[in-house]
């Protein structure tokens, strides 16, 4: 049924690790910020082309969008620079586990406090268990790296 799409997502997830694996050595050679620029520069150019040649809803009112919703672009570089800095030191797997840990804790906070206009919801016990498992995974990779 949807097995094809699940397979596609797994492949796409592998692509994300590939991206991280490419960034580390690239950053060592040309500088971490330049490596970051290669991601955002190429990405912006490609997206511009995609937008140009695919049908888009006509933009009504960029003005009416709250300004804080336009700030996502400031956060992206933090992530990419951190990737280029950490993969040479931690390896790709450990970096990914750290990122996962950060994502899960932050989504807790976002859900719990209702930040960024998301609906508030109670923390589910299962998610706390998931967080515990990820912390454990980080600990294991840390021990394994020594």
């Amino acid at each position: 049924m949807n097995a094809l799409f699940v397979f596609l997502i797994v492949m796409a997830g592998m692509g994300l690790s590939f991206e991280a694996g490419l960034l580390g050595p690239l950053g060592e050679q040309v500088g971490h910020l330049w490596a970051t620029l290669s991601i955002f520069g190429v990405g912006a150019a490609l997206l511009w082309l995609i937008r140009f040649f695919t049908p888009q809803t006509t933009l009504q009112g960029w003005q009416s969008v709250p300004k804080w919703q336009l700030t996502g672009g400031f956060l992206g570089p933090i992530y990419v620079v951190a990737l280029t800095l950490s993969t040479p030191v931690l390896g790709v797997a450990m970096t990914m586990i750290c990122v996962l840990l950060g994502q899960i804790t932050k989504s807790f906070a976002i859900d719990y406090f209702g930040w960024f206009g998301m609906p508030r919801r109670a923390t589910r016990p299962l998610r706390v268990v998931a967080l515990g498992c990820i912390v454990l995974a980080l600990l294991f990779t840390y021990l394994g790296a020594r």
Partner: peptide
């Protein structure tokens, strides 16, 4: 790297 993950989810 953990902070980066937080930035990503924000």
């Amino acid at each position: 790297a953990i902070v980066a993950g937080m930035a990503l989810s924000a």
